[in-house]
Design a binder for these strands. Structure first.
Length: 226
DNA sequence: ACACGCCCCTGTTAGC
DNA sequence: TGCTAACAGGGGCGTG
C-alpha cells in the first residue's frame, strides 16, 4: 500500500514493476492482459488482480486461462529464477548469428523448438517463431545443429524483422490480445504462414503446410523453406 | 545436458 | 440444435 512504481521493464515475456521495497513479476501467459481502467468499471469474470493508483486509475489483470502469474520478489528481479536463465533479448545486441550458431552445435532438436526455448532466446513465441523461420527460408522441422552459419544470420534478420514489424502493427490479435488500453493489434493481417495451412504461400503460391511440434502448431512452405 | 511428452486452465469452434 | 473433441498466443516439470 502506498508504494510507488519506480520503473517498469521487461525481460522476455515477463513484465517487471520495480518498487522501492521489491518487484512484481507479471507473466500474461496465453490469454492474460493488463488493462488500465479509469474509475471503477464493473469487475468481469477472470479479473484476478487490481493495482490501485492515486486518482481514478487502476490496473487490472484479466486472465481466463490462468497460465499467467504474478510473483513478488524482494531481491534483484533480474536474478529471479523466472528470468535469470533467459537467453539474450531478440532486439538487443546479444542475439547474433554467431551466438545462435554456437548455441546450436550438437543440438538435434528442431530449429523451431530451439527458437522457442527461452534459454536460447528470450520471448519468441509460436507465431513469431513460425514467421521468423519463413523469413529466413528455414524449414522449422530440421535439426538446429545442422544449420549453417549463414542460416542463422538470416534467422536473426528474420526474428528482428518480424518483431519490429509486429510492434509497428501493434501486435497480433488472434482473439484476445489487446494493449493496455484495450486496443487490438493488426499484425495478424501480415502473417505469411501462421494459421494459413492449406492456403497458398504468399511468395510462391504452393500450399502452406501444417505439423505439430511439442503440442504447438507449425506452419511452413515446403518450397520456400526447404 | 538433452529431447520429449504431459500438464496446468477456460473458452471457442469444428465436426458429427 | 446439442454434444464432444480438438485446439488456442506459454512454459514448467518429470522421465528416460
Amino acid at each position: 500500500m502506498g508504494r510507488r512504481v519506480e520503473q517498469v521493464e521487461r525481460r522476455g515475456k515477463v513484465l517487471i514493476l520495480r518498487f522501492d521495497v521489491g518487484s512484481l513479476l507479471v507473466h500474461l501467459g496465453m490469454s492474460g492482459h493488463l488493462r488500465l481502467c479509469q474509475g471503477a468499471p464493473p469487475t468481469e469474470k477472470h479479473d484476478h488482480l487490481e493495482i490501485l493508483f492515486p486518482g481514478p486509475w487502476r490496473l487490472r489483470l484479466h486472465d481466463p486461462r490462468r497460465f499467467g502469474g504474478v510473483l513478488w520478489t524482494a531481491g534483484d528481479p533480474l536474478e529471479h529464477p523466472l528470468v535469470a536463465g533467459l537467453g539474450p533479448e531478440p532486439l538487443e545486441d546479444g542475439l547474433t548469428g554467431a551466438y545462435l550458431f554456437n548455441a546450436s552445435r550438437g543440438r538435434r532438436v528442431a530449429i523451431k523448438s530451439f527458437l522457442m526455448n527461452g534459454r536460447v532466446v528470450a520471448g519468441i513465441g509460436n507465431i513469431y517463431a513460425n514467421e521468423a523461420l519463413f523469413r529466413a527460408r528455414l524449414n522449422p522441422l530440421q535439426p538446429a545443429g545442422g544449420i549453417a552459419r549463414k542460416g542463422f544470420d538470416r534467422l536473426v534478420t528474420g526474428i528482428q524483422g518480424v518483431l519490429q514489424a509486429a510492434l509497428r502493427h501493434g501486435g497480433t490479435t488472434l482473439r484476445d490480445y489487446c494493449d493496455g488500453e484495450g486496443r487490438p493489434g493488426h499484425f495478424q493481417l501480415e502473417l505469411n504462414v501462421y494459421g494459413r495451412s492449406g492456403k497458398p504461400c504468399l511468395a510462391c503460391g504452393r500450399l502452406v503446410r501444417h505439423a505439430r511440434q511439442g503440442q504447438r502448431s507449425t506452419f511452413w512452405c515446403a518450397h520456400c523453406q526447404p
